[in-house]
């Protein structure tokens, strides 16, 4: 079991790295699907078969498919890849790398502190999950359903075709303010010259 876990974990990490470094959106999506599938394998090795199934069906099967549909619909074409190449320079990675390094350090620190614990081999089947869901977590279920309803309505409304806004009509507040020279501290025409 351990070997499966480690292999699947390495695959997941590698696939995720590929996701964030691809220039083509569709390539990134496909790699994401691979990542999700390997995470499902990890779930199975951890003794959560129900969740593994759910991961594959819903996450990789429904959500990722939605992603792929939308990206295909956008019909970005080769020039998108070109712009992506321009934007995704090595220099851009510095900031995220620093933040991630801090987080990784924190996680490692915590793990080292907590000591190693072998996960229990017992697997928690669908039956327990179901009983937990409809027992103590009933409210969560109801809220989740309401969330779904909201998302449904929202997505429908937001995705409707509308006229394009004319961005030029919007008043450029910043420009007018600095042109007049007035602001909170120095109203009117800048620093008042000392009266001779």
């Amino acid at each position: 079991m351990d070997a499966t876990f480690y292999v699947a974990a390495v695959v997941a990490v590698l696939a995720t790295v590929m996701v964030i470094t691809r220039l083509n959106a569709v390539h990134a999506l496909l790699y994401l699907i691979v990542s999700l599938l390997s995470v499902a394998v990890v779930f199975y090795t951890l003794g959560a078969p129900f969740i593994a199934a759910l991961e594959v069906i819903i996450y990789a099967g429904a959500i990722m498919v939605l992603f792929v549909f939308v990206v295909m619909m956008l019909n970005l074409g080769p020039q998108a890849t070109g712009t992506e190449r321009i934007w995704l320079k090595p220099g851009m990675w510095i900031g995220p790398c620093i933040l991630s390094a801090i987080l990784v350090a924190e996680v490692v620190y915590l793990l080292v502190q907590a000591g190693t614990v072998h996960p229990g081999a017992a697997s928690v089947g669908p039956k327990e999950v179901g009983m937990a869901l409809f027992g103590p977590y009933m409210i969560g279920v109801e809220l989740a359903s309401m969330l779904m309803l909201g998302a449904l309505v929202g997505a429908y409304h937001l995705a409707r075709k509308r006229e394009r806004m004319e961005t030029r009509d919007v008043i450029d507040c910043d420009a007018t303010r600095t042109a007049a020279g007035g602001n909170l501290i120095r109203p009117g025409t800048g620093r008042p010259s000392s009266a001779a």
Partner: peptide
């Protein structure tokens, strides 16, 4: 696992609205 199901539901909702 229950938490993961909720997370899944949230991800689904967020993805649909985000893609819209």
């Amino acid at each position: 696992q229950v938490m993961f199901i909720f997370i899944l539901a949230t991800a689904a909702a967020e993805v649909s609205v985000g893609l819209a």
